[in-house]
């Protein structure tokens, strides 16, 4: 083994396709299971959230308009890029959480596969959930699911990579853009995933990643009037009532999920029904 001093990564936020430091200038210490220092990720502020929402809103129109085939390919590209960096993610999961390498490998494998699974939904969800409605009159009437807009998500603490994938993939595959707060204790997977995103042709602003404290960011997410929906799967259920109550101000759609399934995609889609006469 060489005595080379390795080059450590500075973990930053990921907003609008760039890697800014938090505007607050704050960081916090991430330690591994044995209490050894790992990194100083950003302690994102409400202003970082604000910037991320602006980026997500700006990106929504273009991402929403992208063809389902295109969305599917980009999600698949995320899987490709993740696959190529397996070792890095396994390493980070082991380092931070202290799980065995074998267990970390399973998580990374599942994450890649989960991305592939969601990628395939891009061009199927409309046919699954859409409908041609047989109304009693000379009208063509159909219902299609459409993206809701800007969704915020609080990723679960663990598993730090797979949970993160489940927090972002179903949201973006439906055409939404997302602002996600990564696992506080294990944010490395999420921040490294930003590198995957940056090499995957995903338009800037579609996924925006914050690191920091749930207690600090969640209330601002709940009250932000330009956030349309909120995935609180990563939030302690004791906090749900408060978030839902605050979110009522703009009638945010606020959900927590127990598993991955197509319903998770549809939860952040709106059904649009279109009527048109049939005649000469």
């Amino acid at each position: 083994m060489s005595n080379r001093i390795d080059v450590k990564k500075t973990y930053k936020l990921f907003i609008n396709g760039a890697f800014p430091r938090t505007e607050s200038g704050r960081t916090y210490e991430v330690k591994n299971a044995k209490g050894i220092f790992i990194a100083n990720p950003c302690l994102a502020s409400r202003k970082d959230l604000r910037d991320a929402v602006v980026a997500a809103r700006a990106a929504h129109h273009g991402w929403n308009k992208a063809t389902a085939y295109n969305k599917g390919q980009i999600l698949y590209r995320l899987a490709e890029m993740l696959e190529g960096r397996r070792a890095q993610f396994v390493d980070e999961i082991v380092t931070v959480t202290g799980v065995s390498k074998a267990k970390a490998e399973i998580e990374v494998t599942d994450s890649v596969d989960r991305l592939v699974w969601y990628a395939g939904w891009a061009d199927k969800i409309s046919s699954l959930s859409g409908a041609l409605n047989p109304v009693a009159g000379p009208y063509y009437n159909f219902t299609i699911p459409e993206s809701m807009g800007v969704i915020a998500a609080i990723a679960p603490e663990t598993p730090s990579l797979l949970g993160f994938i489940d927090s972002i993939a179903p949201i973006i595959v439906g055409g939404n853009t997302v602002v996600v707060l990564a696992s506080t204790k294990a944010p490395l997977s999420a921040m490294s995933f930003a590198e995957v995103i940056a090499t995957s042709d995903l338009p800037a602003g579609v996924i925006n990643i914050l690191t920091g404290r749930k207690d600090e960011i969640t209330p601002w997410m709940a009250s932000h009037m330009d956030i349309d929906g909120l995935d609180i799967s990563g939030l302690s259920s004791k906090k749900h009532a408060e978030v839902k109550s605050t979110g009522a101000q703009n009638l945010k759609r606020i959900y927590s999920f127990k598993s991955d399934e197509p319903g998770r995609i549809l939860a952040f889609m709106e059904n649009k029904t279109v009527w048109h006469p049939i005649g000469l």
Binding site: P138, Y139, P277, I278, G279, L280
Partner: peptide, 11 residues
């Protein structure tokens, strides 16, 4: 220059 007529609406 004439506008069209929507059959269902006219009916």
């Amino acid at each position: 220059s004439l506008s069209g007529v929507d059959q269902v609406g006219a009916d």
